[in-house]
C-alpha cells in the first residue's frame, strides 16, 4: 500500500477521498490548497499525489508543474469539476499535457478512483 497526498479545497470531498483510500489500506494525508500541498509533500514524501485543479493561493496546474520539474516520474492524479467557463475537460486535458499519470472528472465513483490509483502506482 502507498503513501498518498490529497490536495483539494473542498473539505467534504477531501475527507471522503481520505476515507475511501484509507479503507483500501493506503496511508493518506490531506492539504487544503496548493501551498499547503507543497508543504505537506515535502514532509510526507508521498508516492502518489491526487490534486484538484482550481484552488485558491496555488492552483493544481502550478502544483503539477512544480512537482514534475522536481521529479518527472512522480505519480500524480488530477481531479477537477470545472468552474463557470473553465470546464473540467480543459483542466484535465491541460494536466494530461503536463504529464500526470491519471485524470478524474468530478464526480467520480469509488471504482474509478481505485482504478486510477492502481494505474498511477503501476499496480
Amino acid at each position: 500500500m502507498a503513501r498518498i497526498l490529497i490536495i483539494d479545497d473542498e473539505e467534504q470531498l477531501r475527507d471522503l477521498l481520505k476515507q475511501m483510500l484509507s479503507r483500501d489500506g493506503h496511508e493518506v494525508v490531506t492539504a487544503f490548497d496548493g501551498v499547503d500541498g507543497m508543504r505537506v509533500f515535502n514532509q510526507f514524501n508521498p508516492e502518489l499525489v491526487i490534486t484538484d485543479i482550481i484552488m485558491p493561493n496555488k492552483d493544481g496546474i502550478e502544483v503539477i508543474t512544480e512537482l514534475l520539474c522536481r521529479n518527472p516520474n512522480v505519480a500524480i492524479i488530477a481531479i477537477s469539476g470545472g468552474r463557470r467557463a473553465i470546464t473540467a475537460e480543459f483542466n484535465l486535458e491541460s494536466a494530461e499535457m503536463l504529464g500526470v499519470k491519471g485524470i478524474l472528472s468530478k464526480p467520480f465513483t469509488r471504482d474509478q478512483l481505485r482504478e486510477a490509483v492502481q494505474h498511477a502506482l503501476g499496480l
Partner: peptide
C-alpha cells in the same frame, strides 16, 4: 469580473502547458 478571472486562469493554465511543452 468572473469572466476576467476565468480568462486569467485559462490563459495561465494555457501558458503553463505551452511553456512546459
Amino acid at each position: 469580473q468572473e469572466g476576467h478571472e476565468d480568462m486569467r486562469q485559462y490563459y495561465k493554465t494555457l501558458f503553463t502547458v505551452i511553456n512546459q511543452s
